[in-house]
Simulated scan of single mutants.
Amino acid sequence: MDERKRDSMIAYLRHRMEEFGITPDTLATALASDESEKTKARYRAVTGETWSGEGEMPQWLRQAISAGQSIEHFALSPKAAEATPAKRGVDWEKDPFAGSPLARSGGR
């Protein structure tokens, strides 16, 4: 991983956490509750993102449907919904912040 991109991402995340008043403890709590929510997933993207079918449809699913994909393509069988997907590494070659003003400024 490119150390500069990593540092830029960390700076960006710290800035956004401060902006919204998120502490490391609240983030850890939210992440822990997200893990328990994964067992209730009804839809899953190839990247491992999930949606229970409740609340607002996530952007990854809206975009896929807008592109012509059916929602059934992402539906999980009851057995698959209980399984936890394998963690995938981040592809820093596709870093969404690369080349952005935030990345160039080091998050300042």
Rank of each mutant, 00 (worst) to 15 (best):
Arg62Cys: 13
Pro101Tyr: 11
Gln69Cys: 13
Glu93Met: 06
Ala67Asn: 11
Arg4Cys: 00
Pro24Thr: 06
Thr26Gly: 08
Phe97Ile: 04
Leu76His: 00
Gly99Ala: 02
Trp92Gln: 06
Ile22Ala: 06
Ser77His: 08
Gly106Leu: 08
Ala30Met: 12
Lys38His: 07
Leu31Met: 12
Arg108Asn: 13
Arg104Val: 06
Gly99Gln: 01
Ser66Val: 04
Ser66Ala: 15
Met17Pro: 12
Ile10Leu: 15
Thr23Met: 08
Glu35Trp: 00
Gln59Glu: 15
Arg6Cys: 02
Gln69Trp: 07
Leu76Phe: 00
Ser36Tyr: 03
Ala83Leu: 14
Lys79Asn: 09
Tyr12Phe: 14
Ser77Gly: 13
Met9Phe: 09
Ala81Cys: 06
Glu49Val: 01
Glu82Tyr: 07
Lys94Ile: 02
Gly68Tyr: 03
Val90Leu: 10
Ile71Pro: 01
Leu31Arg: 13
Gly68Cys: 07
Ser77Pro: 04
Gln59Cys: 05
Thr84Met: 11
Pro85Asp: 04
Met57Phe: 02
Thr39Ile: 03
Gly89Tyr: 12
His73Trp: 09
Ala75Ser: 13
Ser33Trp: 02
Trp92Leu: 10
Ala81Gln: 10
Glu49Asn: 10
Ile22Gly: 04
Asp95Ala: 01
Ser66Met: 10
Gly68Leu: 09
Ala86Pro: 10
Glu18Gly: 10
Ser66Leu: 12
Gly106Ile: 05
Thr39Val: 05
Gly48Gln: 07
Met1Phe: 02
Thr39Ser: 09
